[in-house]
């Protein structure tokens, strides 16, 4: 069976540095226009099977949202393949993407910015459907489907005629979910869908997303910085740092036996109401280096308490550990150095 989503060696670079005038420089007697490149994503490979929830975690600036937006083809990837049910969409144009979008939809982080304030809820939810059929869908059917969708996500008929500002954050996120579901996608890319919500509302939305997965057999690519949320929802997890995937594995494995020092540090830094949990204290000093100027060798070596000479010269690649877990760390070759 082909995977719902398969991403191979995805790279995403952004040119920054402003206009030609800003970049203009004299060097070696010639006028030059050097540009600066942010390497946001550096060779990420992942796959999501039908009905599976795969989460990407990491701190701000690690590239997790860029991966999501590149897969949704909001960005064009600099390099790499993105396959939706076997079809490589990495170089598709806007028109070619249209039929793909009925198989893949996105839910955004900010429920205040992702809904058009001048559209009524019924029009917001119906838009993808009308777009897919190029306006030929029977109006009656679309209207009925819209109401069904709203009911399914916990809103009612009278909500359909209102505008987004009349809703709370949790309700808006429900509208965003209904919009994504309207075209019956197999894959939903959810970029921090609950991080703007209060905890009691967050639980409602997470439960709704899990129910919808069971009901429609949805697959999720779930982007989050919150480890407890990820632990709750994901079947498999990828940990990102500075645009690199440093560890992947099943939920159970990754949380009970994290191997990469960064994963271990993340887990020990997360506050918890559970005091009894055994804690491995890997405390990180310093901050994430700039993606403009990636460190040589391992991306994590500048903050890693276990870094040694090899980490400076050689970039570790993801290695299969034999139990479904993959780790990019030189310590896997030299476990005796792992003193923590």
């Amino acid at each position: 069976m082909t995977a719902m989503l398969q991403v191979e060696n995805l790279h995403q670079e952004f040119r920054i540095g402003g206009s030609l005038l800003d970049r203009m420089k004299f060097a070696d007697g010639r006028l030059r226009f050097p540009d600066t490149r942010v390497k946001a994503v550096n060779g990420v490979s992942l796959s999501v099977n039908r009905g599976e929830v795969v989460a990407l975690v990491g701190e701000s600036g690690c590239g997790k949202s860029t991966v999501a937006k590149t897969i949704a083809r909001i960005y064009r990837p600099s390099q790499g393949a993105i396959r939706i049910e076997g079809e490589d969409i990495s170089s598709y144009g806007v028109r070619e993407m249209l039929p793909v979008r009925s198989r893949m939809q996105m839910i955004f982080q900010d429920p205040f910015a992702s809904l058009n304030p001048r559209q009524k809820v019924r029009d917001i939810v119906a838009e993808p459907l009308l777009e897919q059929t190029q306006g030929r869908a029977a109006r009656k059917e679309v209207a009925q489907k819209t109401l069904d969708l709203l009911a399914r996500v916990g809103l009612n008929t009278e909500h359909a005629g209102r505008y987004p500002h009349q809703f709370s954050g949790g309700q808006r996120q429900r509208i965003g979910i209904a919009r994504a579901l309207s075209v019956n996608p197999g894959l939903i890319i959810a970029d921090e869908p609950v991080s703007a919500l209060d905890v009691s509302i967050q639980a409602q939305i997470l439960n709704l997303m899990m129910d919808l997965r069971d009901e429609f057999g949805l697959a999720y690519l779930f982007i989050s910085h919150d480890l407890s949320v990820v632990h709750h929802i994901a079947d498999r997890i990828g940990v990102m740092y500075l645009g690199f995937l440093v560890e992947t594995g099943s939920r159970e494995k990754l949380f009970s036996a994290p191997r990469h020092p960064y994963t271990r540090a993340l887990l020990s830094a997360a506050p918890s109401i559970e005091k009894t949990r055994p804690r491995e204290e890997i405390e990180l000093s310093g901050e994430v280096p700039s993606a403009l100027d990636l460190p040589s060798g391992c991306c994590f070596r500048t903050r890693c308490p276990l870094a040694f000479e090899r980490c400076k010269v050689e970039r570790p690649t993801l290695k299969d550990m034999g139990d479904g877990q993959q780790v990019a760390c030189h310590l896997t070759d030299e476990p005796e150095r792992d003193t923590q």
């Binding site: 009691s200 639980a203 439960n207 407890s228 632990h231 929802i233 918890s272 109401i273």
Partner: peptide
């Protein structure tokens, strides 16, 4: 309700307990 709404890696449940409604 607040305590139960937080996903707890130590006791994972299929569904989170949620507080219905909104403030």
């Amino acid at each position: 309700g607040l305590i139960d709404s937080i996903p707890n890696p130590a006791h994972r449940m299929a569904r989170l307990k949620q507080i219905p409604g909104a403030v």
